[in-house]
Design a binder for these strands. Structure first.
Lengths: 236, 236
DNA sequence: ATGTGATTTGTACTATCGTACAAAAGATCA
DNA sequence: TGATCTTTTGTACGATAGTACAAATCACAT
């Protein structure tokens, strides 16, 4: 079952540390934190279990390092794109540019490895779902600034919508984004093969289009004079 | 650490089976499948670990039973609401009714226990994120019919949008729905306390409002003659 | 080439996991 | 009450978890 590292993998650039990080990222992102053992990671990286302990001390430390590695570049890229988006004159175009600035880095790059951005975003989605403590701490102190910046920017281009609603809709955006990365095959299945859920370009365009429209929806709180409820809410 | 079952809990209605199911549901939904041990569940239910084995044979069997318990009522409720929604004349109102028929049962009821619907939906979100095999099988064969029914209904009220895009947007809806149940506190935090992410009624209204607008967005594939990209897509 | 610090390996320890199973306790009805 | 079936308890077993650590190996400056 264990695949011995071939010379091609270890001899040229014996950067075990990177290999372990990449393997852990992939495994955590697809199976969750607790379902993956240190031994699984070591095996996938062609390394020895002890090597993981040496480089990252603990399993939590390994997860922490994955976040450290990605958060910087992704947030940098996002703020660059956000700054550019804010310079767009037309308000409708600006909104789309802002949303795109939020979405695109989540799907692409961040680091050097191919598919790294999508994989890390999927990892965040899974850790968030599992209520992982390590992730929760990092998220709160690393991503909230970025989130606020985007919320503010969107709010500026949609001044008539209360900030609270912008928050809700941003939250929905992140949820949709996460879910698209978690189960892309569901899109393929439900569309009977007509759409490819794994195609990042499609996902981005569809998500941007849908989200921009969602943001532009009339406000619920103040603006609309209470649309009647078509269907009862609940009984519990 | 282990709390001995008081007479109030076990004596009156000694339905350990139910208690175990409820405890497992709660723990799985908040911590994921692998992070929770059978002993954790037993302890939370005031039962003996062996009792879990007796009633459900395996840990997977326990998860399976949770799904069995909820899927029927929830899908029944959804199809009832969907049937009612389809009778709405006005196309705009009908779309909203359909979306509501999809969203409301996910947040409320399903079973008798308070908050049961939301908890089960959150459980599904977490299992989906973890790529849980048991859940994946059940979902595909239980929820795909319902999903198709909703997609078709939405498609009928938005005939000018290609089905593929309806699928994408439905997928986003489910992602947003899931995420709202997974990390409601994020909404409260980002809105600086102005919104309560845990309030089901708010979540439903916000989600319905935003989603209806998303569905009504112009189609991307055929209709719009290729909007220019405001921001580059990637470099990887 | 050799010594030195960094890395990798191999292995072992303890804790906890899911599950099995026999014994105890409880319920049901003749 | 006693027999029978259901449920609960207590405990044990093998597997695997995370982590520690000494020995082996490697990279490289001198």
């Amino acid at each position: 079952m264990v695949r011995k590292p071939t010379s091609k993998e270890t001899a040229r650039k014996p950067n075990m540390r990177e290999a372990i990080l990449a393997a852990a990222e992939e495994l955590f992102a697809t199976n969750g934190f607790n379902a993956v053992s240190v031994r699984d990671i070591a095996q996938a990286a062609g390394a020895n279990p002890g090597s993981v302990t040496y480089h990252f001390k603990t399993k939590d430390g390994l997860l922490l390092e994955i976040y450290r590695r990605h958060c910087g570049p992704m947030n940098l890229r996002r703020s660059e794109l956000l700054a550019a988006a804010k310079r767009v004159r037309d308000l409708q175009d600006r909104l789309e540019a802002i949303v795109r600035a939020y979405v695109v880095p989540a799907f692409t790059s961040g680091s050097d490895l191919a598919g790294g951005g999508a994989r890390f975003t999927r990892l965040r989605a899974v850790m968030s779902a599992e209520g992982n403590e390590v992730a929760r701490r990092i998220i709160a102190q690393t991503f909230d600034d970025t989130s606020h910046a985007f919320i503010d920017a969107i709010h500026e281009s949609l001044p008539h919508i209360p900030r609270t609603e912008i928050v809700w809709r941003s939250h929905f955006l992140l949820g949709a984004l996460y879910y698209s990365l978690v189960t892309p095959e569901r899109v393929s299945r439900l569309s009977r093969g007509e759409a490819d859920g794994s195609d990042a370009a499609s996902a981005i365009e569809q998500l941007v289009q849908a989200t921009v429209a969602a943001f532009q929806a009339p406000a619920l709180d103040q603006t609309a004079p209470a649309r009647r409820r078509t269907v009862a809410s609940s009984k519990t």
